[in-house]
């Protein structure tokens, strides 16, 4: 069994280096158009891959997860804040699960 703290330290180091190296070392703009484009799309690809299909099993019932997902999509398309989108998704799932019981 690996120590939980060594996991925490390892990931903290990796994450900090990712943030600190560009801020301290790169003073010029990146020239490669491919790398710039790749980095531009990375957050969208990563977060989308993390969200779906995992979101279907985020709650105890697929139905409440799907309803929460739909509401979050609609609110996000209307540019609602992070707090609103996350809160509303949870609230909708909660209401749906009340009806399931």
């Amino acid at each position: 069994m690996n120590n939980v703290f060594s996991y925490i330290i390892v990931m903290a180091l990796v994450t900090y280096l990712i943030r600190a190296l560009p801020l301290t070392l790169i003073r010029k703009e990146i020239k490669s158009r491919f790398i710039k484009s790749f980095l531009h799309y990375v957050p969208y690809a990563t977060l989308a891959a993390m969200t779906f299909p995992a979101i279907l099993h985020a709650t105890d019932y697929v139905v409440s997860s799907v309803m929460g997902f739909i509401v979050a999509l609609i609110l996000a398309l209307n540019k609602k804040s992070l707090l609103t989108v996350a809160g509303a998704a949870c609230a909708v799932a909660f209401v749906v699960e009340i009806f399931l019981h």
Partner: peptide, 15 residues
């Protein structure tokens, strides 16, 4: 159970 959606709601709000 419902709070499990919070992180995904945040991701959706970002992307």
């Amino acid at each position: 159970s419902c709070l499990g959606l919070a992180i995904y709601g945040m991701f959706i709000a970002i992307i």
